[in-house]
């Protein structure tokens, strides 16, 4: 199949970018989207041009590195997949494909289609863990966990922190990501112990990183490659409220980064 690609090119973080149009021919419908990009890059390099920089690694939909906004959709026109799992059979011969980087204040562009998602790591560092050191823990079967809770926790834990939720959200909100992270711990007895502290710290950091907030439009859920649901955002809200209302005097973790 022959395609026209309109791709965002930006040499580095401080420069202005622009769209550049490329024509590409004879793409196999069985190729993955990134293999199509590889072919484009191979042809660019052969011509002596700089290839289009894009993030990718595992190419099997689990590492969460790939991140393209394709024709108005993060990870392109398929549901439940990442860009590396998107196949060209989802496009038609002669299509024009517009490829943009994730757009969010918290995800600055580093080059072309590569953005910096360190903000996600910062949110996790603020509290996305169970505070246990290595060793000295009880037997794995010491605390039975209802299967349904383990399954719900796993649903949330499936998040690959690719940032598609932020990219899709009209407010560039990270609530689905934070909701998933808070949920997977809140649903398990091990994570419950510091659940209130965790949710306050993570939300405060989320605000500090400059993400927008949730207006319940559901674009994140629709675009999440791991099909994480809005239920996790509601759980985040619930956990947060319980934490704020339940905290004893002076025990609130101060939140908020202003507007």
């Amino acid at each position: 199949m022959d395609l026209t690609l309109k791709i965002w090119r930006q040499p580095n973080a401080s420069s202005k970018g622009k769209f550049v149009t490329y024509k590409i021919k004879d793409i196999s419908p069985g190729s993955s989207f990134l293999e199509m990009m590889d072919e484009l890059n191979e042809s660019l390099v052969t011509k002596g041009d700089e290839p289009v920089a894009f993030d990718h690694d595992c190419r099997e939909g689990i590492c969460g590195t790939c991140s393209m906004f394709i024709n108005g959709r993060p990870h392109g026109p398929d549901t439940g997949v990442t860009t590396c799992q998107l196949h060209m059979r989802k496009f038609k011969d002669g299509d024009t494909i517009v490829i943009e980087p994730w757009r969010a204040r918290a995800f600055p562009v580093l080059k072309d289609l590569i953005v910096d998602r360190t903000a996600f790591d910062k949110i996790v560092q603020a509290g996305g863990y169970v505070s246990v050191n290595t060793g000295g823990v009880p037997d794995g079967n010491a605390i039975p966990i209802p299967k349904v809770d383990a399954e719900l926790a796993m649903d949330a834990a499936a998040c690959i922190s690719c940032g598609a939720c932020v990219a899709a959200c009209k407010n560039a909100s990270a609530m689905l990501f934070v909701g998933a992270f808070v949920s997977k711990f809140a649903l398990l007895p091990q994570g419950r112990i510091e659940a209130h502290e965790r949710v306050q710290k993570m939300v405060a950091e989320m605000d500090r990183q400059g993400f927008g907030n949730c207006t319940n439009t559901g674009a994140c859920e629709a675009e999440c490659p791991k099909l994480i649901t809005l239920e996790n955002i509601a759980r985040l809200n619930r956990e947060f409220l319980a934490a704020k209302l339940g905290a004893r005097k002076g025990e609130n973790v101060r939140g908020g980064g202003g507007i």
Partner: peptide, 22 residues
Amino acid sequence: QNWKARPKRYKVAPYSEMSPFS
């Protein structure tokens, strides 16, 4: 806050949402 969270807009507007009015 939300507008500030996305200083640069997309060329092709995000495609999906739950309800058109939201």
